[in-house]
Design a protein around this nucleic acid. Structure first.
Lengths: 177, 177
DNA sequence: CGACGCCTTGATAAATGTCAAACGTCGTGG
DNA sequence: CCACGACGTTTGACATTTATCAAGGCGTCG
């Protein structure tokens, strides 16, 4: 049997998880990038729905298989705990993001994406403005205006709407603080 | 050795966990009531600080003890996973709360407290307005005004600032939706 | 070229925050 | 016993932030 971590839901491409609120808005819970594990939840029902942004390949594992493995294999159980703990940490960070102001939310998001998928100072965002807005709990207009502001401040560059150039990381980090 | 669940951080009284933001605001992560387990995190650093509201008794366990137990005892490891999974679920709910409007946040909070510590339709809140505001990501004034509004709508009663009477649970649940 | 989708910009509205003052309750000391 | 002060809460007037609604721009693909 393969190692545990090779058996879980791991996207190639990008996955977003989301929930529709009573007023029709969509809240995005997370973006999962290639190699990330997701959907490891405790109850019968998943809290969030998941869908691919563009094409994605996902390794799927039945929850029952995971649980029964954890019953037998102590190491596997610990690994499960670790994955869930990491996810807990991520959600805590996301929660803290949602109480910041609009500029700080956008900056946090750009820094997060830059860390997760930039090789240079340039990032190709895999998601739309609407996805970003729904992740940050803002409207698409506020996200757009905030980015425009960062461009005029020379903090970022925006060669195209999906490409972000980090021009002044220090300022970004300070804004984020 | 006692069972696992009897060994973890369990307050008698009320504990709040919090973080101070860069702009000086305080965000409360959770209120833990008697019997609740908290502080089961994965990294070296706890994400949130914890303090008692009034007097509280807490059973404390060293993280190293827990980890080493999980290495030996498969059942314990699963129990750890379960606790962490529950906490994950709680934080997800809290996150969804923070993207609602002020009235929905206050209503969600009142329903949560009512479920967690009401025996009748009346609840004695163990925390101040400031604590509530910092939990909900609102100001104390907005919390106060929203409650006043709910009182004029006859949805709740407010015999004293700390005592809440649920007058119309159906409306509360609808507002919360 | 034209249509479509996505993004940006502008004008205005709505929600929430800020600042200030009044109110109530409770405990203390005259 | 009453007066007073401290503290937490409520209320009011106003400011600020973000949402809403509407229009225009820009790139892509038929």
């Amino acid at each position: 049997m393969k190692r545990f971590s090779e058996k879980m839901n791991r996207p190639i491409g990008v996955i977003r998880t989301y929930k529709i609120l009573s007023d029709g808005r969509r809240q995005i819970g997370a973006f999962y990038l290639p190699g990330d594990v997701f959907g490891l939840e405790i109850g019968k029902e998943h809290q969030f729905s998941a869908e691919a942004i563009g094409n994605a390949t996902v390794l799927v594992v039945r929850r029952s298989a995971i649980v029964s493995l954890a019953e037998r294999d102590c190491h596997a159980a610990q690994e499960l705990w670790t994955y869930t703990g990491r996810e807990l940490h991520r959600v805590q960070e996301h929660m803290m993001l949602l109480v910041k102001n609009a500029q700080q939310r956008v900056v946090s998001f750009l820094l997060e994406m830059s860390e997760r998928l930039a090789t240079t100072d340039e990032v190709e965002l895999p998601m739309s403005r609407q996805d970003i807005a729904d992740y940050l709990g803002l409207t698409i207009e506020t996200v757009s205006r905030t980015m425009t502001q960062l461009v005029s401040d020379r903090t970022i560059g925006l060669p195209s709407s999906r490409r972000i150039v980090v021009r002044n990381r220090r300022v970004l980090c300070e804004l984020n603080s």
